[in-house]
Simulated scan of single mutants.
Amino acid sequence: MVIGNGVAGTEAAKTIRKRDPLAEIKIFTQEHYPFYSRPRIPELLAGTIALDTFFVYNREWYDKNKIQLSLNSVVKEIDSGNHKILLTDGSNFTYNKLLLAMGSRGALPPIEGIDTVKGVFTLRSVEDVMAIRRCATNAKTATLIGGGLLGIEAGNGLRKLGTSVTVVEVSDRLLPRQLDGEGAATLQKQMEGMGLTFILDAKSKCIREKGHKKILELADGRIIESDFILVSAGIVPNIILARTAGISVNKGILVNDHLETNIPGIYGAGDVAEYKGRIYGIWPAAQRQGVVAGINMAGGHEIYGGTVPSTTLKVAGIRLTSMGDILSEDNGVEQIKRTNPEKCLYKKLFIKQKRLVGAILLGDNKNASDLAQLMEKKVDIENHKEEILEPDFNINSLLK
């Protein structure tokens, strides 16, 4: 049984079905729609993809794979002693193995009025997209709180709708988790050229209304006025259900190498799971965790060894991939850089003990997957570190 139909829950169900053709598989989700690609939500917001092409699997796929999908179903309680889940509609179901893959919700920073003023949105679901698009129909301006990956992509989506967007970021640079200062400045120049406005190193103080306008007041007294506000300030794992069931949680649901919780037979995967102190919050990690959890729920003994963090900005005309540890202040980390400001090219490798531990590829990320393999396989690159970033270097030669 699976709670949550995101990538982790769906991959787990697929994996269980492959290993056990006869297993009864049920997925419960409070979503109104079957599985869809959450990373493509900014595209749906921009209107560059249609809703009917947004879903990864339709109802026929679930029927074909004999997976019972229950939409609009809210689980209110897990009775681990009796191996049951209870829904808000009063129904209950018995499980042998249970996966918690409830994902996360958009974080709301401690800004006065953020949760009371109408016209303030987060962007995590299809329903969020629909609400924002309805508001944007008659809007000319929007304020976006958060200059992270999703924030930049959402801001670009709003721009495509014809909305003038001002991005307010508390850090002194864009994408503070994916870029260093020089790389962020290069990206900012590109995004400004596309029409976005940025206010950096700015702490938001309060949100209020002035007629039909939304007013964001910054801590330094500056005022930003717009038709609506979109908040993109990270995620909060949905752990309340697990906590009330006696499952160990920290920021996320604590899982071991098999992605099992402290209660035998109950697993966690995706944005809701915390593995070795880390909540990944990225699609590749959730996908792999779903597979590992599915294998183990079906009787296997698969080990999850972590995922190399890798994120790619999906904005037309901009190629950016950031992976591994690019923020380390370890003096033992060597940095190799190649830049071309005229072409908005910024590439940087982070090397420790002859191994690649991180990389920034802005302007040219075609070798991103090969560099990720170098990291995962911990290949010694000492003799080729100065060549790897050259356009004609064959990285595959190091992977043989």
Rank of each mutant, 00 (worst) to 15 (best):
I132L: 01
G6K: 02
K343P: 07
G252V: 09
A23Y: 03
I351M: 05
Q190E: 06
N394W: 03
R355T: 09
L216V: 06
E169Q: 06
I395K: 02
V231K: 02
S91L: 13
T141N: 07
I326A: 01
N331R: 11
Y267K: 03
E390T: 06
Q353T: 06
D115Y: 00
Y346I: 03
K314R: 14
T312C: 13
K352Y: 11
N238P: 08
G221S: 11
S310E: 15
I199F: 07
A23L: 05
F93I: 03
A185R: 12
K378C: 06
K354Y: 13
L149S: 04
G47C: 07
P264A: 12
A293L: 11
I132W: 02
I295N: 02
F93Y: 15
K348V: 01
T48W: 00
P309A: 10
K276P: 10
F35E: 08
D89T: 10
E31R: 04
G294S: 08
S322M: 08
R133V: 14
R159Q: 01
I224H: 04
G195K: 02
E169K: 09
Y267W: 09
I41C: 09
E334N: 00
G181I: 00
V2A: 01
R38T: 06
P109K: 12
K314W: 03
E386S: 08
L149Q: 12
S73A: 12
G146S: 06
K400G: 11
L362A: 11
T116D: 12
V117E: 07
P391G: 01
L374H: 02
Q335P: 03
K352T: 15
K378M: 11
E192P: 03
R222W: 10
K189S: 12
I25A: 13
I266A: 07
Q287D: 05
R173E: 00
K14V: 00
V292A: 11
V231L: 06
Q287V: 00
Q353D: 15
I223A: 12
I295G: 04
T166I: 00
Q335R: 15
P284E: 01
M191T: 00
E112D: 11
A368R: 14
G146E: 05
G103L: 11
G265A: 07
L150C: 10
T312V: 09
R208E: 00
K18L: 14
K385W: 08
T141I: 05
K76H: 03
T122H: 02
C344F: 05
S104Q: 11
T15V: 05
G103R: 09
I381L: 01
F228D: 14
Y33L: 08
A50P: 10
M194L: 15
R173N: 05
G195C: 08
D63V: 13
S91K: 13
E169L: 01
L51F: 07
K203T: 15
I152H: 07
T137R: 13
A372G: 10
V249E: 03
P34Y: 06
L45S: 08
G268A: 04
Y275C: 13
G47Q: 14
E274K: 09
E225N: 12
M323R: 10
I78G: 04
T29Y: 01
W283E: 13
E77Y: 05
L230A: 07
R59D: 12
N250V: 11
L174E: 10
E60Y: 04
L87N: 04
L45T: 02
G147Q: 05
I381C: 01
N92I: 00
E24D: 14
